[in-house]
């Protein structure tokens, strides 16, 4: 067989190989996206907020870029949601109840950069909230402050701090008050033990606790996110529930982040960043305020000042040395909460 014939034979075989691989590659090629979808994994009580916010952002994005964007939402206890993202839930962005739950995406999942908090203003917390009490109309159990929660016969509703970010804010607010009132941590621990002794049901998230208190009619007082308390009062109708502002509460800073590893893979990094950045815009801050979240913008805060009661607020950093320390001391497995609360006790 001549070498020229052999060269020709090799050549058409090679062409056949290339054609086969090209055909497979074309079959596998993803079509260019004409609509972007984002998944926002959020904590429990933000359903109504993001329902309105997502519409506003989609309109803004369409006007700015001509592109359509659809935002899908997932809601649940903040800690549970963080774990779901680490376990593979394909979140493009997270909007969780506290910085610690966002930080675990770096610590345990390597899904976000170490310096995620500096990506957006105010340590990536576009709005704040706090913890208040929600009681029945007429406040029949005369609940005025934290010490009323441990009176015999008072039933307290609060979610499980192991799963809910809001529950951790509740717990720390109570601890801060007790430490100030009684002077030391041992007394604070005793106070919290009595408080959880008055807690018949622990829901996994803040919205679940609201359901327990408002819809199931269980409990005398709900320890609630401020926005949740306002929403529940408004939905149930005037006069059915009352908000009681305790003497001390905590500055809760729900945090947001782009899940960079997922967003890069999805090709949604740019729109994801814009989505979170828009929370800081005047429209974003207005929407937050309308849903009873305390806006960061001074102008919007001034506009809604009468809506939000003035409180003596402690901070996580000032009172507890930061989230890392608070989590290890109070909420890690075997830590103080596990020691003081046993179901059925």
């Amino acid at each position: 067989m001549s070498s020229s014939r052999r060269r020709i034979r090799v050549s058409w075989r090679s062409a056949a190989f290339v054609a086969l691989v090209l055909a497979a590659s074309l079959a596998a090629a993803r079509p260019a996206a004409c609509e972007t979808t984002l998944l926002n994994v959020s904590y429990d009580p933000t359903r109504e907020l993001y329902q309105d916010y997502n519409l506003a952002f989609a309109k803004y994005w369409k006007q700015k870029t001509g592109e359509d964007v659809t935002i899908q939402q997932s809601h649940g206890g903040s800690g549970k949601q963080a774990r779901s993202v680490i376990d593979g839930l394909e979140a493009d962005v997270v909007t969780l109840a506290l910085a610690y739950d966002v930080d675990v995406l770096y610590q345990k999942g390597n899904l976000i950069p170490k310096n995620w908090q500096s990506q957006f203003a105010n340590n990536s917390a576009p709005y704040t909230s706090t913890i208040v009490f929600l009681v029945r109309a007429g406040n029949p159990k005369a609940i005025r402050d934290w010490d009323d929660l441990v009176k015999p016969g008072v039933s307290v509703i609060t979610p499980n701090p192991k799963t809910s970010g809001g529950a951790r804010w509740n717990y720390l607010a109570a601890w801060a008050w007790a430490r100030r009132r009684y002077g030391n941590d041992d007394a604070a621990r005793e106070f919290l033990t009595k408080l959880y002794g008055n807690t018949p049901v622990l829901d996994s998230g803040a919205r679940g606790s609201t359901t327990t208190f408002v819809e199931r009619g269980i409990g005398d007082v709900l320890l609630a996110w401020e926005n949740e308390a306002f929403l529940a009062s408004k939905e149930l109708g005037d006069g059915k529930l009352e908000i009681v502002v305790p003497s001390v509460s905590i500055l809760a800073e729900p945090s947001v982040a782009v899940v960079e590893k997922v967003a890069q893979r999805h090709g949604t990094a740019t729109v994801a960043r814009e989505y979170l950045q828009y929370l800081y815009s005047p429209e974003g801050q207005e929407i937050a305020a309308r849903h009873y979240y305390r806006p960061r913008s001074p102008e919007v805060a001034a506009k809604y000042a009468s809506q939000f009661p003035k409180l003596d607020l402690v901070t996580i950093d000032g009172e507890f040395g930061g989230w890392e320390k608070a989590q290890t001391t109070h909420f890690a497995d075997g830590a103080l909460f596990d020691q003081m609360y046993a179901p059925g006790k």
Binding site: P200, V201, T212, R216, G217, I218
Partner: peptide, 10 residues
């Protein structure tokens, strides 16, 4: 009863 029902629900 409400508490028990709610616990079961959860």
């Amino acid at each position: 009863v409400r508490i028990l029902e709610r616990k079961l629900e959860i």
